[in-house]
Design a protein around this nucleic acid. Structure first.
Lengths: 197, 197
DNA sequence: AAGAAGTCGTACTTCCATGTACGAGCTTTG
DNA sequence: CAAAGCTCGTACATGGAAGTACGACTTCTT
C-alpha cells in the first residue's frame, strides 16, 4: 500500500534496473556531486541507454536519487521519539540527523546545481516540518528562546548540521566528536540565554 | 607604498583596463557566480581578447576578483576596534562582517567552483585569523565557552554568517533584522551557558 | 510460444563556454 | 616620433557531457 499508485505498466525487470540506477546514483552522487550519467550507468551495471530509457534527463535522475535519500532519511527520523521535553527530544533528533546530513551533503550539492531551489525546498518539506514543529513546541514550553523567529532558529540548526558535515569532510572535525559538538552548539542557540549585559 | 611591488613593466593603459575588468568581475560574479568571461568583458567595456590578455584563464580572473573583494573587506574590518571585552568586540566585528559576507557570497561560490579549496582557505587567512584571535581571547577572558574547540566556534560563526546571507537572498530574513539575529545567535553559541540538565 | 517491453552497444549530433590565432590599428612612453 | 605595448574583432579549435537514433538481441508476460 505504498509504492505503485498508478503505474499499471512497466515490467519487473525494468523495475529492477530503475532501482539499481537510483541506488547507484545516490551512492555516486553522495561522494561526487559531479558524477556523469555515464559513470552512474556503469556503476549500476546497466547500459547508458537503459538509463536514458528511464530518466530522460540527468536532472530527473538526480531528483530521483535525492527523493530516495530523503525517503530513507525520513524513515529513520520518524522512528525518533520526539515527545516529552523539547530539549531532550532535540538532542535525540540531532543524534540521528547529523549522520544523514553528512552522508547526503554531496548529493544535495548535486541537486542544487540542477534543480530549481523551490523544488529542493519542496522535497525537504517533511524534515523541515519535523524540526520546525519541535522548535516551535520548545518555544511554547519555554524551553527554547522566543526572541528569534522560529524559521531562523530552524535554519541555523540546519546550517550547523551542514557545517559539521563540511568540517568533517575537511578533516577539521573528528566524526567522533561531531554529535557532541553539534548538540552543544545547537542547544546554546536554541536555549539562548539572553545574556544580561 | 602598497601596490606595485615588483612590476616595472605594464603600461598605464593596461593597468586601467585590468582594474576595470577586476571590478566588473567582482560585481558580476557577486550576483551571478556563473557569469561568463564574455559577459564580464562586456561589463568592463573591454574586448574579450583584452581580458584574455591579462588573465589567461577564467579561474585566474575569479581569483583576482576574490582577492579584490577580500582586500576591500580586510580594510573595512581592520578599522573595527577589537579591544576590550571580547563579547562586545565580537558584536562590533559582526556588525561590519555580515554585510561583507552577504555581498560576496555569490563570488565565493564562484571561486569554490574553480579554485582548489586550499587556495580559498589561504586567501581567507586574514579574516579567519582575526576571528580566531578574538574568539580565543574571549575564551581566555572566560567570556566565551571553552568546552568546544576554538576552530569549531570560528567555523560556526562563519556558517551562521553565510546562513544569514542565504536567508536574506531567499527572502526569509529581512536585511534589517540580520544584524540582531546574527549577533544574538553567535553570542549564544560562543557564550554557551552549558545548561545544567 | 509469440509479441511486447526492455536492454544495450556504437555512433553521432548538439551545445556552449573556454581558450587560441591573426593581424590591423590605437596609445603610451621615453 | 617611433617602437613597444595594448586593444579588440572575427574566426576557429577544443573538449566534454548531454541527449538522440538505430537496430539487434534478450527477457517478461500472458
Amino acid at each position: 500500500m505504498a509504492e505503485p499508485s498508478i503505474r499499471p505498466k512497466r515490467r519487473a525487470d525494468a523495475e529492477r534496473s530503475i532501482a539499481r540506477i537510483v541506488s547507484a546514483a545516490r551512492a555516486l552522487l553522495s561522494s561526487d556531486p559531479n558524477a556523469k550519467t555515464d559513470d552512474i550507468a556503469k556503476a549500476a551495471g546497466v547500459g547508458r541507454m537503459t538509463l536514458y530509457g528511464h530518466f530522460g534527463t540527468r536532472a530527473e535522475l538526480v531528483e530521483a536519487a535525492l527523493v530516495d535519500a530523503l525517503k530513507a532519511g525520513d524513515e529513520t527520523l520518524s522512528a525518533v521519539d520526539l515527545t516529552g521535553n523539547a530539549r531532550e527530544a532535540m538532542t535525540r533528533l540531532l543524534a540521528s540527523s547529523w549522520q544523514i546530513v553528512a552522508e547526503s551533503a554531496a548529493l544535495l550539492a548535486a541537486a542544487e546545481e540542477v534543480l530549481p531551489a523551490g523544488r529542493i525546498r519542496e522535497l525537504h518539506e517533511r524534515p523541515v516540518r519535523r524540526m520546525t514543529e519541535l522548535v516551535s513546541r520548545g518555544q511554547d514550553q519555554g524551553v527554547f528562546r522566543a526572541d528569534l523567529p522560529t524559521t531562523w532558529l530552524v535554519s541555523v540548526v540546519q546550517y550547523i548540521l551542514h557545517g559539521a558535515a563540511t568540517e568533517i569532510r575537511a578533516g577539521r572535525l573528528a566524526p567522533h566528536d561531531a554529535a557532541e559538538v553539534v548538540t552543544k552548539s545547537v542547544e546554546s542557540v536554541l536555549t539562548g540565554q539572553a545574556v544580561k549585559r
